[in-house]
Design a protein around this nucleic acid. Structure first.
Lengths: 62, 62
DNA sequence: ACCTCTATATATAAACA
DNA sequence: TTGTTTATATATAGAGG
C-alpha cells in the first residue's frame, strides 16, 4: 500500500487524481480563507479557475 | 496550561493575539493557494487586507 | 514584530464503500 | 462518480525568547 497523506510538490499528472485533488484542496482553501476573515477580522477575496476553466470565488463581507 | 491547537470559530478579541494569528494564518493560506495552483494546474488569485488595512496578494502565473 | 518549540487540531492521499 | 475511512502529513495555538 502506498503511503498516505504525502504528495510531491509538482503537477499531478493523472487526470482523475488531479481533479479529485482539486476538489478537495479547493474546499480546504476556501475554508481557510473564511476562517482567516472571521478569526482575524480581515477582508479576503479569492478567485480560482479550475483546469477545466470553471470559476470558483469567495469574498468576505462585513 | 491552556489547550494548544484549538480555537473557537469567532473573532479573536485580543488585539495582539489577533495580529499574531493573522500573520501565521495568512502564511498558511498563501502556501495552500500556491500548492493548489501547482499541484492541480489551477489559476488562483488571492487578495487579503489585514485589520490594519495592509494589502497582501498572490496570483499564480503560468 | 518575529523566531522556536511542541502538543494538539486539522487537512488530506489513498483506499474503498 | 460521490462519499467515507483512516493513516499520515501539515498547520497552528500557546508559551517562551
Amino acid at each position: 500500500m502506498a503511503r498516505r497523506g504525502r504528495v510531491e510538490l509538482r503537477r499531478i499528472e493523472d487526470r482523475t487524481s488531479r481533479q479529485v485533488r482539486f476538489s478537495k484542496r479547493r474546499a480546504g482553501l476556501f475554508k481557510k480563507a473564511f476562517e482567516l476573515s472571521l478569526l482575524c477580522d480581515a477582508e479576503v477575496a479569492l478567485l480560482v479557475f479550475s483546469p477545466a476553466g470553471r470559476l470558483y470565488e469567495y469574498s468576505s463581507s462585513r
